[in-house]
Structures are given as C-alpha cells and as structure tokens.
Design a protein around this nucleic acid. Structure first.
Lengths: 121, 121
DNA sequence: CAGTATCCTTTACGATACTG
DNA sequence: CAGTATCGTAAAGGATACTG
C-alpha cells in the first residue's frame, strides 16, 4: 500500500507520490527530458525543437532539471559560446519510466475525451 | 520517437506527452487516485485520509477526475446524505501505470536530494 | 455530511527588451 | 548564442465562513 496521508509538512516531503509529482509537474519538465532523448542539444536547438516555449521559461526549467540531477549543462566558451544539455543516467531513467505512461495516455485520449463530452452533456 | 514539438495550439492538444501531463499534473489528482486504491471512500474519509487538503480544493479535484472518467460519484440521499467515490476501470488503469513511477521515485529520492544539495552547495 | 462561496497568496507561464 | 531582467497574466492552491 502506498502512503499518501500526511499530518505534517515533513511527512509530505517523504511521501513518494508527492515526490514523483513534483518531478513531473509543470508543463515543461518532461517535455525537455523527452526532447533530449536521442542526443544532447544546445539551447537554441532545444527551443526550436519544443516550439512553443519562451526563452525565460525554458531557462528556468533547464535550471531545475540540472539542479535535480536529471540533465547536465556543458559550456564550450567560443566565441561564440555554445551550451549543450544532455540527459544524465537518472534523467534517462526517468524518461524510461515515463514512456509506458505516455503511450498509455496516447491510447486513452479518446476515452477521456468521450467521458468529458458525456459529463459536459 | 515521441513527438513533442508543436507549431500550433491544435498540435499541442494531440501531443501525448502534453496530454498525460495534464492528467497527472497538479498536486492532488494522483493522490486522490491512490487514496481510492483499496476501496471506495466517502468525501470525509478521503479528506481525512489525505490529511492536508482543504475541502474546496478536494471538491474541485474530485470533479475534474469524475469529468475525465477516472472516478465515479454515487449519492445515497440519507438523511444524512452519503457521497461515495470509487475508481473506474480507467482510473485503476492509470493507478497501475503510475505505480512503477512511484516506486522508482521513492528509490531515487536520496539521489535527487544529493544532486540538489551539491548544486545548491 | 458534503459541499458552496469568497477572498487571498503563490506559483507557473508568457511577452518583451536588453546583454556579454 | 544563450542567456538575464522586468513586467504582467492566469491558474492552482489555501483559509475561512456559510448551508441544505
């Protein structure tokens, strides 16, 4: 059985459900991880690849992911300077854990849409 | 290869990564799903079981989950009225998909904490 | 018991301009 | 190229009071 109930803030920090959620929560974290699947990418390439993320938000998310140990940041001082981001083993591990969920989600999209339409009546 | 880049809003709606994220994102969705794992629960029981969620927020999340087809809501008009929430097959399916991720997250908590401490250091 | 209704704070996200 | 700095908006969450 998975513990979820808490009576204190300290307890919440130890809760695995809450921990994993704080890792995948947010619109961009997992998208960046997925974007780095095949090869390390530079900032500009990452931004173009994702498409609809702004510079400031992308930077912010990259910092979070680096801080938590999911990606690395390598600077090649040019000029021009070139910064490259890559998955760590931990990051690749998270990606592999997410894949079944992503595939499942893709399969069930229509089911959810139907449920929503029925509910909205 | 998982598609993530988009050039339009319509494309973003079809993106599996973004879809699954919108299902599990938020501090409470998955916690409620997990709380319903073993048996249907009434509103009050659910609230006590989770511990640190407010009534209004719990209600809001229950409505979302019901709308998307992950849980059902059954009313037994009393008095006093008793409302029971239960997982649908879809909800149970999502729970099973999340479990490996939850277990993994639990195992890696210390790794992330260490990475964070090193980064902040 | 199981909610609604308000109001407030925090966080995420977004747009734009500027810089070594 | 890869950011930083500012500013503004929007959504999530939280606190509290009230109700059939």
């Amino acid at each position: 059985m998975i513990p979820i109930g808490v009576e204190s803030k300290a307890q919440a920090l130890d809760c695995p459900v809450r921990t994993i959620l704080s890792n995948v929560t947010g619109k961009w974290r997992i998208i960046v991880i997925v974007a780095l699947e095949d090869e390390p990418k530079r900032f500009g390439a990452l931004k173009r690849c994702i498409g609809d993320v702004t510079q400031s938000v992308l930077t912010e998310n990259l910092r979070h992911l680096e801080r938590d140990g999911y990606i690395t940041r390598s600077v090649d001082p040019g000029p021009p300077v070139a910064v490259s981001y890559a998955l760590t083993p931990l990051g690749r591990d998270l990606l592999e854990m997410m894949k079944p969920l992503i595939i499942w989600s893709n399969e069930k999209q229509d089911t959810v849409r139907a449920a929503r339409a029925a509910y909205d009546g």
